[in-house]
């Protein structure tokens, strides 16, 4: 089994980040967009923990990661509540339909 190095983690996190951005840009379902945002946050988390292990030492990277996990949960809760409010009003969570607001 090949030895795992920092670059393995960085490649995986960069891919995760790319998939997250791709999901945000291409998906129309609001829940799928939120999932894209979660992917971006998790990519950053992987970076933080990997850098903490291979570069910085200590626990600050892992602590940062823990805080981000909590924040991601809070953000998902607020986001899903808003999506639910919209769904109850218009029975639809397609972001391309949300066009009441424009000049």
């Amino acid at each position: 089994m090949p030895h795992l190095t920092l670059s393995h983690f960085l490649v995986v996190s960069a891919l995760l980040f790319g998939f997250g951005v791709l999901a945000v840009v291409t998906r129309r379902n609001a829940v799928a967009v939120l999932m894209g945002i979660e992917l971006i946050l998790n990519a950053a988390n992987l970076n933080l923990v990997a850098f903490g292990r291979y570069v910085a030492g200590g626990i600050s990277g892992q602590v940062f990661g823990l805080f981000v996990i909590v924040l991601a949960a809070a953000e998902a809760a607020v986001g899903l509540a808003i999506i639910l409010a919209i769904y109850q009003m218009v029975r639809n969570i397609d972001t391309s339909q949300a066009t009441t607001l424009k000049e």
């Binding site: 953000e75 986001g79 808003i82």
Partner: peptide, 8 residues
Amino acid sequence: EASLKYVI
């Protein structure tokens, strides 16, 4: 709708 755009 405003809050959905804001959160995204």
